[in-house]
Amino acid sequence: MSDNNSDVLLEVNDLVKWFPIKRGFFGGVQGNVKAVDGVSFKIKKGEILGLVGETGSGKTTIGRLVLRLIPHTKGQVLFDGIDITAMDYSKFRPMKKDMQIIFQDPYSSLNPRMTIGEIIAEPLIVHTKMSTKEREKRVYELLELVTLRPEHARRYPHEFSGGQRQRIGIARALALKPRFIVADEPISALDVSIQAQITNLLIDLQGRLGLSFLFIAHDLSVIKHMCDSVLVLYLGKVMEYGTNADIFQQSRHPYTQALLSAVPVPDPDYKRDRILLQGEIPSPIDPPSGCVFHTRCPYATDKCKTDVPELREVAPGHLVACHYA
């Protein structure tokens, strides 16, 4: 991560997002959900960064912040070296076509009253001056790219299976030839065999088109299979950040280790030391003091209860937020 900066496509510095909690009609702000609390990372050109963590850890929020779909509270998001959080929305608008999103739920993210052709062509109409002919050609290209057939363009979303709908979502995201895609749990709602097909498709497209991905998942096996580097989140904070090998072969943070040991492995004879985490993720409204993970950490000491561990580089490019890593 100390590489040449010209390789970096997306850089996030100390990103913070608090959602204020309001009560009643006249009630004031009663606190904040600290959904994202000081997160930094870089995504290089042609790289997939995986984001993992339990539910509510802030994955989706980060995905939406880097696309400026919601306003941030603090910090920077640099795309191609330009801070997109600071610029006027009118200046940001043309940049949007470089950054797209794929959603988790292939059922609700497609307008049921539009044909597949219309759905895929929509971003082309909004962002380009293509003629109808050119648009049609591009739609067919895109359908082929995601291994659907040209005649599918005239059909409606309900005529497709979950996997096919996810392909349509991917085609729509690719329409404007983006350089960066946020994929928010793109396969979790699909059947096992279809998950494999979509995973293959995403990897193939990423290689062929040289895309960069922010890939959000809660399944560590998928992250291990797809991501060049990995960011482990807990309560809106980075616990560990490193390359695929750093995280999956020599993880140093007890939280990462616990997550890894909880993943079910399809081999009845696979043996490992299991770290069974006690309890559940605390409320992000009132996170624990010191290290936010200390309430569930099997190795926590008094120091962990009071001192916030900083994100330290324990090996080149491998960062861990633990006093004892």
Partner: peptide, 18 residues
């Protein structure tokens, strides 16, 4: 053959699947 695995398999390898 559809599931990526924690215990084996390489980065971005093709999943044979169904």
């Amino acid at each position: 053959a559809s599931v990526p695995r924690l215990d084996k398999g390489g980065l971005k390898e093709h999943l044979p699947g169904i």
